[in-house]
Design a protein around this nucleic acid. Structure first.
Length: 586
RNA sequence: GGUCUCGUAGCUCAGUUGGAUAGAGCAACAGAUUUCUAAUCUGUGGGUCAGGGGUUCGAAUCCCUUCGGGAUCACCA
């Protein structure tokens, strides 16, 4: 319809004002809900052609459009805005076209790398945002017609890992996840904290003995020992490697449980311990080609000042690799393995500079595919008390958080007496759907790029702009349709008269595909979240407005049940893009 | 200090390629159910879109500037 209106407007300008324009120049928008109409045509840009005032111009165009487009019943003019009113039957018939399939123009191979944890600590709130975002963006891209691979790049090597290992060696007494009855990632994290504590004590002692803070931090025996361990690791020391393997396995087992609880998944894992060597090889190549240069101390750098950045180190003077060395290697390996058109990195915005540098280096190395690399940079998660700081113990643990959400769902659901007749297993399933629905929705409804505040009290709210709000609309419809079937009521499309709230709902349903495309283009689950809310609201309004099961008119009842079932389909589909499941009753 | 980024109602957030009187939710207050799930719906109050300047028919949106918050600028990752 939009295209028709635009095309006819082009004709109108030709016939009325002897002016040629393209359909793209026609500004057409959905009419603001405060005004009467479905589409609004902006006449301001045409004034110089009509040489008349906005009202007159709008009048003339309105008359022309009504005469030439049968679906347009009436129009009204407010200032320079031409509001076009489409016949209700047009919208009613549109409902037939509504479905969950998104016919997409793009068919690309896309890789989404997300989660990417370090193996020295359990996952926390920040990781939760990352995981939910990555999963959802991947699902949205899939929905809009792309071939998507979800990748998790595990940072399994480096000094931080050695800290946990060393602390375990010194203070662990051979403790294992089994003996401690603790998830493996939490156990390893515990030793990371123990290291940090002991290290600080050492530093404080050295400072007391008169050393400068900075010097003390570098000379504390524990840090020296950890560094020694890292060297041993790089040299393949059997004992260190064995310990490293064992402790990493503990962590992986722990992560797996968390991922499962969150409902996120991956097509493939990469490990930095496998990719850093490839990066190093590439540096050597680039060195030969003059992309990099070597300083007298043997460290290797790249000059990015021409591009407004700085000189950047890519290899230490002792020949070992740094963070970006590994990332060059990983990028290369990922491309070799998949040849994706696009490669998306879901990483926090504190690394904006790093990715700017990385992509630029890849380009300078001559990899054209680096044009398809994109850093999906998301904002940090703050707490009402301020920033999360591990040192101050204000970090919100992912496992705790999930458990609390489910527990809250349980309490609230039982308070409302909604569990009657459910088996124990069904109950657990319901609490999980609701708790995670609330959590996921809360985190995904905010624009990814923006910093967000995590308010524990609000996150477990089940009213208003929340996941459970949308889930509730689905549950209501599902149980209604169930009742309809028991009553042998027909659920089918009929050409009937509809109320304005029903038209509003149909329009919203019809917009689904557009919204998915928009979300895919912007890499933004927030767009889907807001859409799902809008849809649930539009349905709730109809539900309060007109009867469904009790409608006396058979055709109308059939139609409304059909409308409801379409709504349920779309709500479920939209929420699934956010990783949220819908319960059939709640 | 250099670079990047953000600033919208008491709080949390929306706001399409610049378009009408800047919108939701929470919180506050007032209503709706002999009726299909009230985890719902309807209404009221609440704004110098951080301040200032510019571009134009028209700016929360684009440009400049000031102020304020955050990030980053490591032979850490």
């Amino acid at each position: 319809m939009e295209n028709t209106i635009k095309q006819i407007t082009v004709n109108a300008l030709r016939d009325l004002y002897q002016t040629e324009i393209t359909p793209e120049q026609v500004k057409l928008e959905p009419t603001n809900s405060d005004f009467k109409g479905d589409f609004t045509l902006l006449t301001f840009p045409f004034l110089r052609f009509s040489k008349k005032n906005p009202e007159q111009t709008a009048q003339e165009l309105g008359l022309y459009l009504v005469q030439n487009i049968t679906e347009i019943e009436q129009f009204n003019v407010v200032k320079g805005f031409l509001n076009l009113e489409i016949s209700p039957s047009y919208w009613v018939n549109k409902l037939v076209e509504v479905n969950c399939n998104v016919a997409s123009s793009t068919h690309q191979k896309v890789m989404v790398e997300y989660s990417s944890p370090n193996t020295n600590k359990p996952l926390h709130l920040g990781h939760v945002r990352n995981n939910l975002l990555g999963y959802s963006v991947a699902e949205i891209l899939k929905k809009s017609g792309n071939e998507v691979y979800k990748i998790n790049l595990i940072n399994d090597r480096g000094i931080h890992i050695c800290k946990s290992m060393l602390a375990w060696q010194l203070f662990g007494n051979n403790e294992t996840p089994e003996s401690a009855n603790m998830k493996g990632d939490h156990l390893v994290g515990k030793y990371y904290v123990i290291f940090d504590k002991a290290y600080k004590t050492e530093v404080a002692e050295l400072v007391n003995q008169g050393k400068a803070q900075e010097q003390a931090e570098k000379q504390a025996p524990l840090i020296l020992e950890a560094q020694e361990m890292l060297r041993k690791w790089e040299n393949g020391d059997a004992e260190v490697i064995q310990l490293w393997k064992t402790m990493n396995e503990w962590v992986y087992a722990g992560f797996e449980l968390t991922y499962k609880a969150l409902g996120v998944d991956f097509d493939r894992f990469y490990y930095e311990s496998n990719t850093y060597q490839l990066g190093k090889d590439n540096i050597e190549e680039g060195l030969a080609n003059g992309v990099f240069y070597r300083k007298p101390d043997q460290s290797v750098w790249i000059d990015l000042t021409e591009d407004g950045l700085d000189h950047k180190l890519v290899l230490r003077s002792d020949g070992t690799s740094v963070y970006i060395t590994q990332d060059i290697g990983t990028a290369l390996l990922k491309y070799q393995d998949y040849h994706c058109d696009k490669s998306i990195y879901v990483v926090g915005n504190e690394q904006d500079y790093h990715f700017k540098v990385l992509f630029l280096i890849l380009k300078k190395l001559g990899y054209n595919w680096s044009n398809g690399c994109y850093h999906l940079s998301y904002g940090m998660v703050d707490l009402p008390s301020g920033k999360m700081k591990s040192r101050e113990g204000t970090v919100v643990d992912a496992d705790d958080l999930i458990a609390e959400m489910i527990e809250t769902a349980k309490v609230k659901t039982e308070e409302l007496g909604k569990t009657e007749g459910l088996s124990e297993e069904e109950k657990q399933q319901l609490f999980r759907m609701l708790g995670l629905g609330a959590l996921k929705f809360y985190m995904l409804k905010v624009d990814p790029q923006k910093r967000m505040l995590f308010n524990p009290q609000e996150s477990i709210d089940f009213q208003g702009d929340t996941g459970p709000f949308a889930q509730y609309a689905f549950a209501r419809i599902t149980s209604m349709l169930k009742a309809a079937k028991q009553l042998n009521q027909e659920i089918a499309f009929k050409s009937v008269e509809v109320s304005s709230s029903e038209i509003a709902l149909i329009k919203t349903l019809y917009n689904y595909q557009l919204e998915v495309e928009k979300a895919a283009q912007a890499y933004s689950p927030a767009i889907i979240a807001h859409y799902a809310l809008e849809l649930a609201k539009a349905f709730n309004r109809v539900y309060n407005d007109v009867p469904f099961l009790r409608e006396k008119d058979d055709s109308k009842r059939s139609f409304r049940l059909f409308l409801a079932s379409k709504t349920a389909d779309i709500i479920q589909d939209a929420l699934s893009l956010l990783g949220i499941d819908c319960p059939e009753r709640m």
